[in-house]
Design a binder for these strands. Structure first.
Lengths: 128, 128
DNA sequence: GCGTTAGATTGACGTTCGTTGAACTACTGA
DNA sequence: TCAGTAGTTCAACGAACGTCAATCTAACGC
């Protein structure tokens, strides 16, 4: 059941790219995401998408399922939670954000050219 | 009070390097950390340390205080928490790790050559 | 003043990363 | 069987990253 342990820094590095973060965000909403959707929503070529999904897979963040000639990706939320646990030991405390603040944040202005101007989801900005 | 908003991916990228992750871990324990300590504990030269602390500062993760000719760094935990909040919206759920599991994890075998063999803290490995 | 020390900056170097066109593989449907 | 499609792999490229020696700057002690 337990897989190869992955260094925390490798997961951080995987999340530290706008396109990959965008992919993870999309997958968090869809439960399972077709590769073709990524081709439509991301402003990069097919090989580039393949490159990024590979990095996410190696970091343990996503799981790949092949059905015929189509590929489907799904987010491995337990990995994200495991990383959050690790961060929590460094900065323990209750969750800060109220539900309406989450709402407003998802409508925050996009960081321009972070992943292209016509991207479905805007870049995530942190304020504190 | 609120500073320049920083993209989440920039913070992830800052955390995605073994040396910087090590620095953050040390600062989580010390409340305030002298630069000289980093020079003693990290297997890299002074300019390299300066380079990494600069990246952490730009990501908003640490704060610099100069006292005479000495520099002191401190962790900005609210930034880490803000990032955790963002991750939580993607993978909501309770914390997973029990206190004794945290204990055993901190004693986990080091990932060799992740940041040098004589590093005070071992590399963080994730299991799920 | 003047040498020393702590740490940042600069400049150079090799390595890794992100991107693409081209070629390839595996599946589909007729 | 064979053309078309979905997605990967390969090879190459420029850009960004991580490292260090050398240099610089500011504060210290005398």
């Amino acid at each position: 059941m337990t897989r190869e342990p992955v260094a925390a820094t490798e997961v951080f590095k995987a999340l530290g790219d706008p396109i990959r973060w965008n992919i993870v965000q999309q997958m968090a909403q869809q439960e399972e995401l077709a590769c073709s959707v990524l081709e439509d929503t991301l402003p990069v070529s097919k090989p580039t998408i393949s490159y990024h999904t590979k990095i996410l897979t190696q970091a343990g963040l996503i799981e790949v399922r092949k059905r015929g000639r189509n590929y489907f990706y799904s987010l491995r939320r337990e990995v994200l939670r495991s990383l959050m646990d690790e961060m929590w030991t460094l900065a323990p405390g209750p969750r800060l954000v109220s539900s309406q603040e989450q709402e407003s944040r998802s409508e925050a202005p996009a960081l321009k050219a972070a992943v292209g101007d016509d991207t479905p989801r805007s870049a995530t900005l942190l304020t504190w």
